[in-house]
Design a protein around this nucleic acid. Structure first.
Lengths: 193, 193
DNA sequence: AAATACCCTTAATGTAGCTTAAGGGTAAGC
DNA sequence: GCTTACCCTTAAGCTACATTAAGGGTATTT
């Protein structure tokens, strides 16, 4: 059963017992998403936390020139949310789009708050999920202000080896904040070393 | 009383009643910090959430060349924490240093968890504090991968006007990820427009 | 099987931002 | 009130990265 990918995801934090698993399973909805399908578009309000059970997504913003800038990739076992829009019910400034055919589980705010309120274990678990993403973001800010494109690419390879073969380099370049042409040069230079 | 700056800070979220204020006041410690004094150093474990009542701090990382990279400024009314070190009890990779003589309130993990557990209002309030910082970080990542130094400087001026006059440009340049010399050029170019 | 849409690479040229060096200004500490 | 340390600016030369253009390769769609 694919929902076990969600339920056992919490084994990384405080594992759930049978009753808790049942509670959570009853509060999420399963969706199959096609390649290129969006689960969040600009100006919509983000209504769910999303868990990726299968497949891969990109979260990105589009600038006034129409260029996409990737903020995050999320594959199996990762969580996706647009915090600003979800909690403050503001229109989203980002898109979330499937890069591969995917299966996700989504939980809405009333159900999430029910879990927070009625069981401290869920509260703690979801807190850790946000904290982990927080740490990732701080690292990325640091890299952005202190590292070269080559260093950022090497760091990407190291931290996301499972994504390397699944993403076109154009998407990785967008994530790193460089052009595909320059990424191509970086890769060439690295291969010579 | 200076502690009111802390207690009334929650008026921005879910305001505290008298009993809650008393509870919180009993769980924080007040500290006076001198200019240039550190409240967190690399390799120490971060033991507290810190609220800045007066003064100003910078949180930064030092690279292998010894160059500082500013991740955050925090002035009156701001919260400071090193999430990775605080929650996972890992050695910190950042420093937090006072830029001005300051007064802070600090809460340790047992007391914070007590508040989380015994009163959902604290839980919600501290969640929002982290979420706000989270949103700030995502914006900064986006800017880093999609904007020029001039655009980032203009955004800094817009979002942190109260910090502009208090910070030397060297510190702002470090925050923006550029050299002080180049910031000087950016400012000159802007003044011509 | 053909057609279309991506995708990757290379190379020439242009620009944003860094480095080094230097001079003068201003605030902090004694 | 002096001194020292830091800070801001300018400018010349350099490097990292962007832009434009072009050709060939590989999926996906029809």
């Amino acid at each position: 059963m694919i929902i076990n990918k969600l339920l056992s995801n919490f084994d990384n934090y405080l594992p759930l017992n049978a009753a808790e698993k049942e509670d959570l399973a009853g509060r999420v909805i399963e969706r199959k998403i096609k390649r290129r399908q969006f689960i969040l578009q600009e100006n919509d309000v983000c209504k769910h936390y999303t868990f990726v059970a299968e497949g891969c997504f990109k979260k990105f913003q589009v600038d006034e020139k129409g260029t996409e800038h990737n903020l995050q990739f999320a594959a199996e076992g990762d969580w996706l949310m647009e915090i600003d829009s979800f909690y403050f019910e503001k229109p989203s400034r980002v898109y979330i789009e499937a890069i591969e055919p995917s299966v996700i589980f989504q939980i809405n705010k009333p159900n999430l708050y029910h879990l927070f309120t009625n069981n401290p274990k869920f509260d703690r678990n979801f807190r850790v999920i946000v904290e982990n993403r927080f740490v990732e973001l701080e690292n990325r800010v640091l890299q952005a202000i202190s590292s070269t494109a080559e260093e950022r690419y090497l760091s990407f390879i190291k931290h996301y080896p499972h994504l390397l073969s699944r993403l076109p380099n154009t998407q990785i370049a967008s994530y790193l904040g460089i052009t595909p042409e320059f990424l191509s040069k970086v890769r060439k230079d690295l291969s010579k070393k």
